[in-house]
Simulated scan of single mutants.
Amino acid sequence: MASIGAVVAKPLRAAKHGDRTFTSIAFLSMLWLALAFAILCLGVLLVDSFLDGRTRLDSNLLTRYTSRVLPDRAGARAAILGSAWVIATTAVLAIPLGIAAGVYLEEFADPRRWYNKVIEVNLSNLAAVPAIVYGMLTAGFALAIGMERRIVLAGGIALALLVLPVIIISTREAVRSVPQEIRHGSLALGATPLQTIWRQTLPAAIPGIATGAILALSRAFGEAAPLLLLGGLVFVTYDPTGLNSGFTTLPIQIFNWASQPQLAFQQVASAAIILMLVMLLLMNAIAIFIRNRYQNKW
């Protein structure tokens, strides 16, 4: 009877990932240096803005209107309220349409259809289009229908076009992350596909959708180029009262103050930059809280 030799298993070892050649290490070092340089420049700009504008971080900045002759008493009240009106209009226009488009493309669209392929390609391209292009598109649309360009509604349309691809993409990712078992279980119990989407998939995807929508609105909040192209006002001494009201926003107001030669205007511009940064950080913090608090772990 032939003897059977014992097979000794080799100890498991962790595989080495990544190329450790001199070229790869040098390239990785250059990437880290570029990132560190960008963070350093950002930090210097933030510190410089804080040092210049700290004396103007007072109640006048929030409650007073801008001024051409008294920069020490100039405020950003009209810009803050104008930003609120424009961002609220953007949210009303972009979020429902973006969610509906994202759900359709992810759940109902046939990827083999040529028009759905065209939508997919254009959606990816639109997410990288410069913001000023959306301002040009909105200006042309307003001219075609005879709508005034310097109103809240026009600004909301421009920014809604800007953030719509981001909301669609984030909605698709959130819906895609919902396990198929939830859909199958709902359909097996007799629910229609539309009822499954409305009562099961969308509620489970709300944290991801809300996070993407808030981050998209944060981007819109800091945009000035499309609004300037629409003729956004730089000197407003009244509160916006509706969609047909003239407006200014914080980025436009900061641009106006920063272009003035007086040192006092530079200081109030720095203070407004700090204020806008705090508002942006607050919006991003809300998005992170929603994601961490309500995100499901499947």
Score class of each variant (00 low, 15 high):
L215K: 05
L215N: 05
L215R: 06
L215V: 11
A216C: 06
A216G: 14
L217F: 08
L217D: 01
R219K: 11
A220G: 12
A220C: 08
F221H: 01
F221V: 07
E223H: 05
E223Y: 06
A224S: 13
A225K: 03
A225F: 07
P226T: 05
P226G: 02
P226S: 03
L227V: 06
L228H: 03
G231D: 09
L233N: 06
F235I: 13
F235N: 12
V236L: 11
V236K: 01
T237S: 13
T237N: 14
T237D: 10
D239L: 14
D239E: 11
D239A: 10
T241Y: 10
N244T: 11
N244G: 14
S245P: 02
G246C: 04
G246P: 06
F247V: 02
F247D: 00
T248S: 13
T249K: 04
L250R: 00
P251A: 10
I252Y: 00
I252L: 15
Q253A: 09
Q253D: 07
F255A: 14
F255K: 10
N256E: 12
N256Q: 13
N256H: 12
W257T: 02
A258E: 12
A258S: 15
S259I: 04
Q260P: 03
Q260R: 15
P261C: 14
P261S: 14
P261D: 14
P261L: 15
Q262R: 14
L263M: 13
F265Y: 13
Q267K: 12
S270M: 11
A272P: 02
A272M: 10
I273F: 01
I273M: 09
I274D: 01
L275I: 04
M276S: 12
M276I: 11
L277F: 12
L277G: 09
V278N: 07
M279Q: 06
L280Q: 06
L280E: 02
L281F: 15
L282K: 06
N284Y: 07
A285V: 01
I286A: 12
A287L: 04
I288G: 05
F289G: 08
F289L: 13
F289A: 14
